[in-house]
Structures are given as C-alpha cells and as structure tokens.
C-alpha cells in the first residue's frame, strides 16, 4: 500500500477564510461538490447506521435472554463497567496500525470497531435492566396460563420492556453520531472533516460550520429515534402511561446515567446491581 492511497481521502475542504459560517452552509456547491457536505453526511450516516445495527444485533437479544434467565448479573455489571472505561479514540487509534498491517487501511474498520465497543455496553445494559424490571406479576401470570419460557420472553417481557429498550437504543445512537466525527482525525472523513480542516487551516468559520453540522445531525438522530419510539410503543403501555421505573429512566434520568452506588446500597432494594449508565466515547 502506498502512502498516496492512504492520503487520498484526506483531500481538504479548502475554504477561503473570509467565507462566513452561513455563507458556507447555504452554498449549494458546498453540499453537492466533491468533496461535499452531502457526501460526507452520507459517509457518516452509513457508518453510524452500520454500527447501530450491529450493536443492536449483538446486545439486545443476548441481554434479553440473560435477563430473562436472570443470569450473569455480576459479569454483566463488570463488562459494562469496563466497556465504559475504555476511551473510544484510544481504541480506534490502537486499531489503526493493526488495520494497516492487515491491509485494511486507515478506516473504516478501526473507527467502526471502536464505535461498536462504545455502543454495545449501554444497549446491553438498558435491555437487561428493562427486561429484568418487568412486573413479576405479569410474568407469573403468563407462566400460570401456560406460556412457554420463550413465549414469556417474546410475548410478555419484551413488549413491556420495549419502551425502555428503545430509550437505550436512542441514547446510544445519539452517542454514536456525536462521537463519529473523531473519525476525521483517524485518517477518515465524514462530517468531522470540516472541524478538522478548519482547525488545520485556522479557519474559525469553517470550524463553527462543521460543529453546527455535527450537532444538527446528532440532534436530528435524537428526534428521529424519539419519533420511532412513539410509533413502536405498545398501545396498552401508551394508554397506561409510562411504567414507574421506565418513567424514572426517561425523565429524571434521560440518558440512563444513574449509577448503582455500591451494590446493595442503603435504601436501594429496588436498584439493579447492573450499573445503569450510558457511555460516551
């Protein structure tokens, strides 16, 4: 692999320094050109979508199963803790030479893997907690009328836990989108490139324009997932209002950041030993 191919995606968005922030953002040429904002947006969205999809596949079924079986509580807590402790940028950086040695280039694999590592723990956690906190009464009743264990999980626990699971997915997804721009500093492009190039060229307006684009995409992601949440919420749950615990997670603790204290904390009988915490980078 020659240096030239590695450097190819690094074409900088050279923008005259006196271009105003909105002048830049509202210039159609900037959007459709090559490199252009639309292309970068697509880059970012595709990567994030892939990360989110993979994370859901990896985290949700496993967490739901383990929570249903009440298995691996302590192990889950530790995996989630360690997952939270690992800095995404550092992991992605470490993976770059590994990826290069394997002939996979600067990106997208390092950032893809790092973002997935960032996303799986909080999704796993919110699913685990959501399924575990489903009213034991509902579960007992289902068993009493002869549901199989599989039915209990898929027809009772999952629907009732869906609201909280989706909140977890939304939160984690916003984090992915908010973190993806570090890709521009790992040899890739995406929406982060404008901040990178602006910093490099000491072009403040370009930095600000780039920051606005990133923030808009992150905000938009949050809105999109909120809309999906509304759509998938089971009618019965909607009518009943939010379940108590779910309500707490959504309102007082919108990002599921509440810690668990030390296990078995005073007055924490209803607390889960698994840390309720979302990750960031």
């Amino acid at each position: 692999m020659s240096a030239a191919t590695v450097l190819a995606p690094l074409a900088q968005a050279a923008v005259p320094r006196d271009t105003g922030v909105f002048e830049f953002l509202l210039d159609g040429q900037r959007w459709t050109g090559s490199p252009g904002i639309l292309g970068d947006l697509l880059d970012t969205v595709l990567l994030c979508a892939a990360v989110i999809a993979l994370s859901i596949v990896l985290a949700v079924p496993l967490a739901a199963y383990l929570a249903h079986e009440r298995k691996a509580q302590l192990a889950s807590a530790w995996v989630v803790n360690i997952g939270r402790a690992i800095p995404t940028f550092a992991i992605a950086g470490l993976l770059v030479p590994v990826s290069l040695r394997g002939g996979y280039g600067f990106e997208p694999w390092p950032i893809f893997i790092a973002l997935t590592l960032l996303t799986v723990p909080p999704m796993f956690l919110s699913t685990y907690v959501a399924v575990k906190q489903v009213s034991p009464g509902a579960v007992d009743a289902a068993r009493a009328v002869g549901y199989t264990e599989r039915d209990v999980l898929t027809k009772v626990e999952l629907p009732l836990a869906m609201t909280v699971i989706f909140t977890g997915i939304r939160v984690a997804s916003v984090q992915v989108v908010a973190t993806e721009p570090i890709r521009a500093f790992l040899g890739g492009d995406g929406l982060g490139r404008y901040v990178r190039d602006g910093l490099g060229q000491r072009n403040q307006n370009l930095v600000i324009a780039g920051a606005i684009l990133i923030a808009l995409l992150a905000g938009g992601t949050g809105l999109l997932f909120t809309a999906i949440e509304r759509l998938v919420k089971p009618v019965g749950v909607r009518r009943l209002g939010r379940p108590k615990r779910a309500g707490r997670l959504q309102s007082a603790d919108p990002l599921g950041l509440a810690g668990e204290g030390t296990e078995g904390t005073a007055g924490s009988a209803d607390r889960d030993p698994v840390v309720a915490a979302a990750d960031r980078r």
Binding site: P181, Q204, A211
Partner: peptide, 26 residues
C-alpha cells in the same frame, strides 16, 4: 428547577465532543 437543570445538562452532554472543542477555539 429539576426539569430545567436536568434538561440543560442533558443537552450539554449530547453536544458532540469534536464540535464542542472546535467551536470554542475562536
């Protein structure tokens, strides 16, 4: 004030880090 405080801090939390660092440089 609980709502406004958690709302504001939640908003700050979701600002993408690259954007936040960058936008302060000027």
């Amino acid at each position: 004030t609980v709502g406004p405080i958690t709302g504001t801090t939640a908003f700050l939390y979701t600002i993408p880090s690259v954007a936040f660092f960058g936008v302060l440089v000027p």
